[in-house]
Computed example of a mutant assay.
Amino acid sequence: MSLRVKAGIDLEELKKYGFKTGKEWADAGERCLEGIGYKYQHEWYHKFLMDADEPSKIAYIAEDYDIPCVQISVRTEHRDLYVDVAVEGTYHVGGSELDIVTDTIYELTQAGILEVVPEESEGK
């Protein structure tokens, strides 16, 4: 079972919930979506856990890597919700760091934007 944005919902609606396109994140200088290797994600919509010290910047696992701590993405071609959590140099990610995931899923569900896709229907 997975979640996806319902057919007929304009993906631009996601911007009301803190999502931006990969191109917008890259243009803002966020390294996790900069460069030719990430171009395939530029049309997708992404939301990230933001840095506690610099709230306008994405929280990364370490200064040396371009891996975000928490990422929520919607691939435009499938409209599916993808969540990724990475840990490096920390004991674990959890608690308040994952509130962005549960809060976002709750808000999108309450707004009627998400639907549950049964396993046999995935990819169709």
Rank of each mutant, 00 (worst) to 15 (best):
74 V>T: 09
95 G>F: 11
94 G>P: 08
90 T>E: 11
113 I>H: 00
87 V>M: 08
101 V>A: 08
94 G>T: 10
116 V>G: 04
85 V>Q: 03
108 L>Y: 12
76 T>A: 13
58 I>F: 07
100 I>A: 05
94 G>N: 08
115 E>K: 01
110 Q>R: 11
88 E>P: 00
83 V>P: 12
113 I>V: 14
100 I>D: 12
108 L>E: 14
123 G>Y: 01
105 I>V: 15
102 T>G: 09
104 T>F: 04
92 H>D: 10
71 Q>W: 09
81 L>I: 15
76 T>N: 11
108 L>N: 10
103 D>V: 03
73 S>E: 05
62 A>C: 09
108 L>Q: 13
62 A>H: 02
79 R>V: 13
91 Y>G: 10
74 V>Y: 02
80 D>P: 01
91 Y>S: 11
73 S>I: 06
75 R>F: 10
56 S>F: 14
79 R>L: 12
69 C>A: 15
101 V>I: 15
89 G>T: 08
85 V>M: 03
117 V>D: 00
66 D>C: 03
119 E>V: 07
123 G>D: 03
91 Y>E: 14
115 E>A: 11
116 V>N: 04
81 L>H: 03
114 L>H: 03
60 Y>I: 13
79 R>K: 12
101 V>Q: 06
89 G>N: 03
123 G>H: 01
110 Q>K: 14
101 V>M: 06
56 S>G: 15
76 T>W: 06
110 Q>A: 15
110 Q>V: 15
82 Y>I: 11
115 E>C: 06
73 S>R: 08
109 T>L: 09
64 D>P: 00
103 D>Q: 04
95 G>N: 11
80 D>M: 05
65 Y>C: 06
58 I>E: 10
112 G>F: 08
119 E>W: 04
85 V>F: 02
107 E>C: 03
88 E>S: 08
64 D>G: 07
97 E>T: 15
61 I>H: 01
116 V>L: 06
108 L>R: 11
61 I>A: 00
57 K>C: 12
74 V>G: 06
72 I>N: 05
74 V>P: 02
124 K>L: 15
66 D>Q: 05
97 E>F: 13
73 S>D: 06
86 A>P: 07
98 L>A: 08
119 E>F: 02
114 L>K: 03
122 E>H: 01
79 R>M: 12
118 P>Q: 01
107 E>W: 00
89 G>Q: 03
73 S>F: 02
58 I>C: 09
72 I>W: 00
80 D>N: 11
95 G>L: 14
65 Y>F: 07
82 Y>K: 00
72 I>M: 11
123 G>R: 01
116 V>Y: 00
81 L>V: 15
67 I>V: 05
77 E>V: 11
100 I>Q: 07
66 D>G: 03
56 S>C: 12
69 C>E: 13
113 I>G: 02
84 D>V: 14
103 D>M: 00
72 I>P: 04
111 A>L: 09
97 E>A: 15
65 Y>E: 12
93 V>Q: 12
91 Y>P: 07
108 L>T: 14
69 C>M: 15
103 D>N: 08
70 V>K: 11
61 I>T: 06
57 K>N: 13
103 D>C: 02
63 E>A: 00
80 D>Q: 08
98 L>Y: 07
88 E>K: 05
93 V>H: 09
99 D>N: 10
70 V>M: 13
91 Y>L: 12
90 T>M: 09
64 D>L: 02
72 I>Q: 04
71 Q>A: 14
